[in-house]
């Protein structure tokens, strides 16, 4: 397969970026999107040109490192699939594919397709944890958690922190991400103790870097972890709850 790749090149955070077009002539349908860029990079290096910088690590959809905007859509054409699991079979021979970094003001471009997603970690750092020190935990069987609760919590805990939800959102909102974290912990007995303070801290921090939600629902379309849109409702639920409870929990 022949594919034209129009790729965003940007030397550094402060440099101005622009698109450059390359061609890969021996793409195959079973290649992943990232393997396609690997192929391109090998070719660029052989020609003595600088390869395209992009992030990836596990290449199996779990680490959340990868992520590029493909023809305007974060991660790529297939819904709920990370870049590393997008395949060339989604494109047609001779097509021009546009590769850009994740776009959001909270994610400054560091180089080419690599962005700085530390704003997400700041949300976690502000309260996305449970204050239990090593060795002080009670027996894990002492607080029963029903099968359904554990599974539901896991549905939200599955977030891989890729930031695609933010890049998909026309508002640059991190509601899906933050809502997933809040829901995961608030469903579990061990996370309930700090439920209220956590919600206040994380939502405050979220609002620093990210936009408000207008219920576009695009986030849930691209989310590789399949976080349900319910997570965005969890933001106001948890925040309002903390107003009415006025307690740490």
């Amino acid at each position: 397969m022949k594919l034209n790749l129009q790729v965003w090149r940007q030397a550094s955070r402060t440099a101005t970026g622009r698109f450059e077009t390359y061609q890969v002539t021996d793409a195959t349908p079973e290649m992943t999107l990232l393997e396609l860029v690997d192929r391109l990079n090998d070719q660029l290096v052989a020609e003595g040109r600088e390869p395209v910088a992009f992030e990836s690590d596990c290449r199996e959809g779990i680490c959340g490192c990868c992520g590029m905007t493909v023809d305007g859509k974060p991660h790529g054409p297939e819904d709920n699939t990370p870049s590393c699991e997008q395949h060339v079979r989604s494109f047609t021979d001779g097509e021009t594919v546009v590769l850009e970094p994740f776009r959001s003001d909270a994610f400054p471009v560091i180089r080419d397709l690599i962005v700085d997603r530390s704003a997400l970690d700041r949300v976690i750092q502000s309260g996305g944890h449970v204050a239990v020190d090593a060795g002080t935990a009670p027996d894990a069987d002492s607080a029963p958690i029903t099968f359904e609760t554990a599974e539901l919590s896991l549905d939200f805990a599955a977030c891989i922190g890729c930031g695609a939800c933010v890049a998909a959102c026309p508002n640059g909102a991190a509601y899906l991400f933050t809502g997933a974290k809040l829901t995961h912990l608030s469903l579990l007995p061990q996370g309930k103790q700090e439920r209220g303070t956590r919600a206040v801290a994380m939502i405050d921090q979220m609002e620093h870097d990210f936009g408000p939600c207008s219920t576009y629902g695009e986030c849930a379309v691209v989310c590789p972890a399949g976080i349900p849109l319910t997570a965005i409702a969890a933001i106001n639920k948890e925040r309002l709850r903390s107003v009415f409870r006025r307690k740490a929990t």
Partner: peptide
């Protein structure tokens, strides 16, 4: 033993049986 208790306490949602035990 402590590892499971601790990881559970800091938020890992381990799979549970229908009765609520790990």
């Amino acid at each position: 033993v402590r590892v499971i208790d601790h990881m559970n306490a800091i938020g890992a949602p381990f799979a549970r049986e229908y009765g609520g035990q790990l």
